[in-house]
Amino acid sequence: MSTNTLPTKPKNLFPVWLSVVLALLWLIIWDLGVDFKDLLYGIEDMTEYFSRYGTPNFSNISSYLYLMVQTLVTAFWGTTLAFIIAAVVAPYAARPLTPNAVAYRVARELLNFMRAMPDLLLALIFVSSMGLGPLPGVLALSVHTAGFLGKFFAENMERVPAGKYEALSAVGAGFTQKIVFAAWPSMLREAVGNTLYIFDRNVRMAAVLGLVGAGGIGLELHDALRLFKYNQASALIIIILITIVVIDNLSSWIRKVLN
């Protein structure tokens, strides 16, 4: 007599998860006091409101374009500085390369700290210490995104096959030599991808840094909306939109070429 025992069917936990999530959401909606009925009732007002954006006013186009260029340059500088900071810190935060455990922890925590500070908060701090203008924006972007890039680079360096580091250690290579001849050549493609991603992100962010006085097109948009100049606001939004779409496509094209 053979005992025909099938393995027990795994429990389907989906309903449990779903009800927990829904209960939590209900609690949140209740606590925040938001009422989505407002949206439904307000839909007529909303359509009226959005129709005010209907006729973009491009009369100041040259100053808008200059601001957009400034925004792009801010993002570019921010990304480059972030890249430099990240390239210096990342090897210390990568387990196979780090010289000792203390350096590893310090580098990790440093990257973590830079990542955790919102760039607009950093921009506020830099604006109050060096005045208005795009420079504080550049610094804020570079500090914040150096945290991201550093983490990405460190992860890439950890993913490089251990044999490469071992081979270089075997011929007596030092810390810097291992970075230059083992880590970077193996992770170049990922690193370029990450940097492009960060650049995309920085362009978006640079477009709103103007809100805190850190240069770029954001301030103009903020002022236009505050003064109810919807036509200029829509022109600005269109310019930002087109630029971001172009940059996005450009970077995905570069990524495709590299692969």
Partner: peptide, 8 residues
């Protein structure tokens, strides 16, 4: 949809 940043 994702072209414009949240703040805008």
């Amino acid at each position: 949809i994702r072209a414009l940043p949240e703040l805008v």
